[in-house]
Nucleic acid binder design. Structure first.
Lengths: 201, 201, 201, 201
DNA sequence: AATGAATGAGTCTTCATTCAT
DNA sequence: AATGAATGAAGACTCATTCAT
């Protein structure tokens, strides 16, 4: 028991459960953000926990207070990204799929790409590996399953002859654009391509 | 003639330069192939040299007889892939860019994807990292610069208003298709999408 | 005050900065001492880090917590020795160079030799290699430059005709004595030679 | 049996035993010389056999045709040096030890130093290690025992009161000069010091 | 006599994770 | 809740030596 602890008791008003929760959540988010940036830039495997700690301004040990392992940290980052994807694009709300909604989705997708470039970078660099896919199996099925269904539904409504193929194709195009934007964000003509894409739809 | 000279003719002669060269070329190719498969499946950083050696049926040390480092091995694999890309698609020969040639390129590209899935897997998993791009700077500039110019030229001929944007877009689509095929080769409708793509062009 | 706050005061506080610093300094010195003994006895190149760790009673990894590389460890050992040399001989304080001071230096030098045999052993075994000299370039220039100047100055005062040569010669003699003492400390008549040397000066 | 061997038999006159011996001896000397230079410059432990082979213009394997191991090669180099030392200084012939002979020895010693700097470099860098001393135990005892006895004898003749100490001291001075010359051959005033040394004797 | 492919033990180094405080 | 010391398993790489030719 150090002097510090003692002082804490006498001079600081005790935090409420809620405050503790807030602090914790804030710290967790901070660590995740720092880790995401480093993972995106240098790769997951080549980013040591120690570096994350340094960038986050905390000790190595503390990270293990919030995440049980490095892989767990990765998983939470990836899942947060997927959740963000869902909520940002309001996928769940898209039930009657009209043209405007698809266009909104396209717009949203590309806007998200611009804002969350780091996340996409990390995502694309890992999605090729079976280990990652396994890690996110359920979550990915949920997210992409939903999107996929809605796209198929949309193309069916449009009277397309191969709605499944078209849906796959459209999603592939999204990711192609994503990758190229990530590799060369300065020069890749994202806005112009966004327009072309919407026109075609 | 002393006894020694007589013995001489029973001495095994060392291998000829040609023999040594054959051994080298064969081993180099074998190692590169094994490494490619492992890198593609498990990732470059998570594949130890020892595992490559085991799969290749040789000792760890021998790999260093042929490649100065793990990174060098990676580089040679990637460059071989690029060279293969160039020669397979006969990029250099495409000077008068007609519709048929572009179509041949699309076909070739997707066929290559089917045949060299491992290479694409590796390529996409690394192209996001600045370190890789740096590793292949010159080679990539050569290859993609050429392709890119021809596409722009083609779209100009076609009277498109934004040839640069269109070229970028088409290349992005290629890679999008590539990634999706790689992630799910069983179910991704590559052939149907190939047709759609050609139709659109 | 929630239960959590109460628990707080029972939490072990982390060590203070001072405590960490103490641990570090102590460990660093311990490692350097063990390494010096082993380097001196078996040579730098033939002493593996693992052996140093074993002798020091710690893990291999911990050495890298305190020294960035084996070479860095060597460098710090050598520099510490040079610093010790300077402070022990009070080189900087010798400004008016009288006979007594030179004699004190000779005495000090040979006493240091007796006490720090390991250091001299290591030093002599490495000083022949350009790599080492390069490693310590600045430090060696500082130390020996100073000593050398004072010796020259002294011989000038004495009216010697070749002060530079005499200074070089005297320093060479020191090292000759050093080497011979190191090789055969039991039988080498260090004390008698010390007297002879002083007499000559 | 390769074609080459066959040709050898029909077109080349068989070498005599003597010629074979000469060729062998020449090659052995060549390898030793190359190895000495590399060992002296970069250290024994940090000079790989492969580098010696490359510098000598032969294959790694061939070295093992002439020397059973790297250590054996070192040993032979060191012993050759010692033998050269003996024969050059004609130590064995010095029986009536007069002043001129000692002077001749001093001269010879320093001349040898100038000519065989590499050897001295190697010698001094290894002589500190017990392993080396063990390797050369007998040879060193022979050489230095002889020299030492003669020096003692000489100082006895001169009526010195501590002939043993003086002999040790003189040998130490030789080595001190040797080391300093080796470290800085350009600027070390070897000739002047040689004169001083002779004068003192 | 000569080559260099091949091996495998050993070395330095990194880093996720644990632990005492 | 927080620190960084400490561990140990694993990885990249080296190199003396052997071996088939």
């Amino acid at each position: 028991m150090t002097e510090r602890s003692v002082i804490n008791i006498f001079f600081m008003s005790p935090r409420t459960e809620q405050q503790f929760e807030d602090i914790r959540r804030e710290k967790v988010e901070h660590i995740k953000l720092c880790a995401l940036q480093l993972f995106a830039e240098n790769g997951y495997d080549t980013t040591p926990i120690s570096k994350i700690a340094k960038v986050a301004g905390i000790s190595k040990g503390l990270i293990y207070n919030y995440f049980s392992s490095k892989e767990e940290l990765l998983k939470e980052i990836l899942i947060s990204g997927l959740k963000n994807f869902i909520s940002f694009l309001k996928i769940e709300e898209i039930d009657r799929i009209k043209r405007e909604e698809i266009i909104a989705f396209v717009d949203g997708n590309l806007n998200l790409l611009k804002q969350n470039t780091d996340y996409y970078k990390l995502y694309f660099s890992l999605v090729m590996q079976p280990k990652t896919v396994q890690l996110l199996e359920n979550e990915m099925r949920d997210v992409f399953g939903q999107i996929f269904e809605k796209f198929i539904h949309y193309f069916e409504q449009q009277g397309e002859d191969q709605p499944y193929v078209k849906a796959r194709y459209l999603l592939a195009i999204f990711d192609g654009i994503g990758i190229h934007y990530i590799i060369d964000p300065e020069r890749f003509p994202l806005d112009e391509i966004q327009e072309i894409l919407i026109t075609k739809i």
